[in-house]
Amino acid sequence: MTSVITVPPSLDDHSFEQVLEQLASVPRDAKLVVDARHTRWASPYGLTALLTLGQTRQERPSFTVPDTEDTASYWARTGFFTHADELYDLHGSVPKARGGESSVLLEITPITRSDDVHNVVGRIQQKSQQILSKELNLEAKATVGFAMTLSEICQNIVEHAGCGGWVAVQTYTWRKRLANRRVVVIAVCDAGSGFRQSLESAPGFVRSDRWDDAAALEATVVRGVSRFRDPGRGQGIKGVRRYLSRWDGKLSVRSGTAKIAILPGWDDDLPLAEKLAPFPGSQVQDTKPERVSGSPR
């Protein structure tokens, strides 16, 4: 029997949970159709997470392309279909990617090795300084921190995931939550080991009374715990948190059945969500809003 997963009209980190809820009861080796025909918009998180979903399936799934030309063209320009073609049997009209998309700071890019991180950082630096300073009024110092953040989040894949993942960076306007302020979003998703499994692989790991995905996320994201004994480890995420708190940004990390978020004042997301539908690997989103007068420097 083939299961059909319906992608919501607007796909972001919140609505992707609807996809995972539908997926929860579908065995990994079952035939699957991911139906995005009625999807009109997707965040970088949504697009990279859809690729990750394709990675998790034992049987090559099908994917139906958005039926709106604008949406499909946009997804093509982000590089989505190039990568989706390797994971899914694509159905529907797949536009050719023509020209660049100005809001896409970094099209969807696979990360498997350390060299990929160098490439991503190099590419983002060329574009980000102009866009981040012009569109988001961020100082030069913030753009350097932005590249550092990107580097650290991508390294998580190389160091911990045990398989490749994807990164995408995009700017867009947040109409509801931030009253038309621009934001820049980094999304990094993989279908690898995930945080809990990574920590469990530490030498001498002892399971605590309350040990689950949420506890693993708290240990890693809040306390900087790492599976490595080297005391310098675990600083990447800590550095990302420090940078985001300085620039009023938000960090959310989903792994397994939990999601943790480091929240700025403008966001009312849950700091910790547990008992979510299970999904392998880790999915990280870093959101930084346009700086307006009076916001943190």
Partner: peptide, 15 residues
């Protein structure tokens, strides 16, 4: 050097 990230700073400077 254009920039250095936290992990690289740990490996080079701290160690």
């Amino acid at each position: 050097v254009g920039m250095i990230d936290f992990s690289c700073a740990d490996e080079i400077v701290a160690k």
